[in-house]
Computed example of a mutant assay.
Amino acid sequence: MPGGTAPRWGTAGASDDPCPTPPGATGDGCLVTGRLSVVSPTGAETPLITDWCQQHPSHSVGDLRFGPDGALYASAGDGASLNFADYGQDNLTGSDVTPDNPCGDPPSPVGTALSPPSAEGGALRSQDVRTNGDPAGLDGSLIRINPDTGAAAAGNPGAASPDPNAARVVAHGLRNPFRMAVRPGTSEIWLGEVGWNTVEEINRVVNPTAGVTNFGWPCYEGPGRQGGYDNLDLTLCESLYAAGAAAHTAPYSTQAARPTR
């Protein structure tokens, strides 16, 4: 994760977890980290990756699939709030149960709330692989890895990167890719992506080894700009807009969004 040591749930017992109600997980956050492990037939666990910092109880780790190439694909959401345009400003309740910027997203350390235009936290974690001033996080991404080691699979577009997470990522700019499928007879990866206020998406990665696909969240939702984040004039989004339509991949299919989640 960008901020260094990954937060863990239940480190010193459930009573020490910073998630009391009130204010509740959607108000102040409920800090956890995802883990991808191999479990042996005897039940022994071998962690491969510990990442996916998540502050709110949605948009967590997603789905797993083996590809026809033998690689393991894993998807995950942005770990951000579903209730507001989350760029790393933390809580709206005034509570300090969870520290500001708990994932340590740039440009400020844990304990310092982020602000536009430089903020790279919240949903902007989905664009983290576009920045090179800090280690890449895996929120809002699709990774392609060696299932035995957790390292980037051979042939990944960024396999030569010295950043192990950047080497793993084959797609990003995702909000909540909670379902995934491999189209039989092809290398295509299809992702069911939960939208926010406008559209739901079906996204397609045509060839995971041909290049890193950016689906644009949170700067884009569906075929157009996401108004809540566009209005904040965030540097990560403004630079993506300036790069033109070819800098991100539009959804394969969309439909009107259901209630926010």
Score class of each variant (00 low, 15 high):
C19T: 14
P162Y: 05
T11K: 05
A246N: 13
R258W: 01
D28W: 09
P164G: 15
L234K: 09
G67R: 08
D128R: 06
G228D: 14
R261I: 10
V129P: 00
G228Q: 13
G195P: 01
G224T: 13
H56K: 11
F215S: 00
D86R: 05
N101Y: 02
A123H: 06
C19G: 12
F66S: 07
R183S: 09
P184H: 15
T11L: 10
G150W: 02
E201M: 06
N176D: 14
T260P: 02
A14G: 11
S95M: 01
N91I: 00
A243T: 10
D78F: 02
R168Q: 01
I202P: 01
G4L: 00
N231I: 05
V110E: 14
C30T: 10
P177F: 02
G155Y: 04
L114T: 08
A181E: 08
A71L: 07
A210K: 09
I143D: 01
Q55H: 02
N83E: 15
A171I: 05
C103F: 03
A257V: 05
Y73E: 00
R183L: 14
R65K: 15
T11G: 01
R168I: 03
P177N: 03
P18H: 04
S141I: 03
G155H: 04
H172M: 12
E221D: 07
S239I: 09
G222T: 06
A113G: 12
P2V: 06
C30S: 15
A257Y: 08
G137T: 10
T149H: 03
A71R: 01
A250D: 12
G155F: 05
P116R: 03
N146I: 02
V110Y: 07
P47W: 07
G244Y: 12
N231D: 14
L240M: 15
R130V: 10
R175M: 11
Q89V: 12
S15P: 00
R183G: 06
R225I: 12
P107N: 04
W9S: 02
A71C: 05
G111D: 10
A85L: 08
L72Y: 00
G27H: 14
G24D: 08
T11A: 12
P147F: 01
T249L: 06
V199W: 07
G121L: 03
A119F: 08
E238K: 11
A247P: 04
R130P: 04
C237V: 08
N146M: 03
L142P: 04
L191P: 05
T198S: 12
T131R: 14
D63Y: 02
N165H: 15
P223Q: 11
P7V: 00
